[in-house]
């Protein structure tokens, strides 16, 4: 098992683990805040996964510093990095909205337990 594979399994394994931890929080925690944290952890895992697929062995950052204009072959894939930037910002926006909703919910129901907030059903 060489280093590349170790890194790969490490990165992917961590991201899968993060996704599962996040899902666990979303599915079992009763507090709205913890659920939002769970969603953020899932997002984090997926962002890690996204970054991971751009990796190549001994890669460098995709930035051309003076004198290294022909280092293209060693550069990691820049696309996932650009994508992850977008994804992070979007995740941030969603989290902000979610937190504001939690504030509203707390004001309205005086509780943060998700199974006590079910006026709308059936």
């Amino acid at each position: 098992m060489d280093t590349t594979e170790l890194i790969r399994i490490g990165v992917y394994g961590t991201s899968i683990l993060l996704i599962l931890i996040g899902l666990y929080a979303v599915l079992t925690k009763r507090s709205l805040i913890k659920i939002i944290i769970g969603l953020s952890i899932i997002d984090g895992g997926i962002h890690l996964l996204l970054i991971g697929i751009g990796y190549i062995k001994d890669g460098t950052a995709p930035i051309f510093s003076p004198g290294s204009e022909n280092a293209v072959a060693r550069m990691v894939d820049p696309v996932p990095q650009a994508l992850v930037l977008t994804a992070i910002v979007i995740g941030f926006g969603v989290t902000a909205v979610a937190l504001s909703l939690v504030i509203r919910l707390y004001r309205h129901h005086n509780t943060l337990k998700i199974d006590e907030i079910k006026n709308l059903k059936w």
Binding site: L23, I35, I114, D115, K121, W122
Partner: peptide, 17 residues
Amino acid sequence: TRRIYTGNGQTYALYFV
């Protein structure tokens, strides 16, 4: 059967999984 829509957001997430 319409009680499948329990009103609990967590249950919906469980359905998702």
